[in-house]
């Protein structure tokens, strides 16, 4: 299991569009990916789960990857968030 903390910079947080991009990236990864947000542990491959959490701009989240390709998948996810999730 590997993990890294990152701050969400998208203006309106993880709204439908950036959340959709986020989930697409996650879905292409083989690892099991969770998003730790406060007390909650979210399924990174679920658009509804991510959107319903209402993650706002400036919030710190932790990406946790578990699986054979966990190292590479974590890099993929962190890069995706850093590049603004298509925004």
């Amino acid at each position: 299991m590997v993990s890294e903390k990152i701050i969400v910079k998208n203006k309106s947080g993880l709204h439908l569009r950036p959340a959709g991009v986020f989930v697409k990236y996650a879905s292409n990864c083989k690892s099991d990916i969770k998003v730790v947000f406060g007390e909650k542990k979210l399924e990174a491959k679920s658009i509804l789960n991510i959107m319903a959490a209402g993650i706002k701009c400036g919030t710190e989240i932790e990406i946790v990857c578990t699986g054979e390709t966990e190292e590479a998948d974590l890099v993929t996810m962190i890069n995706a968030i850093e590049s603004g999730l298509g925004e």
Partner: peptide
């Protein structure tokens, strides 16, 4: 409907 499509395929659901 792009959004609808993601809701249909949603793993959680």
């Amino acid at each position: 409907f792009e959004g609808h499509s993601m809701m249909v395929t949603d793993v959680m659901l």
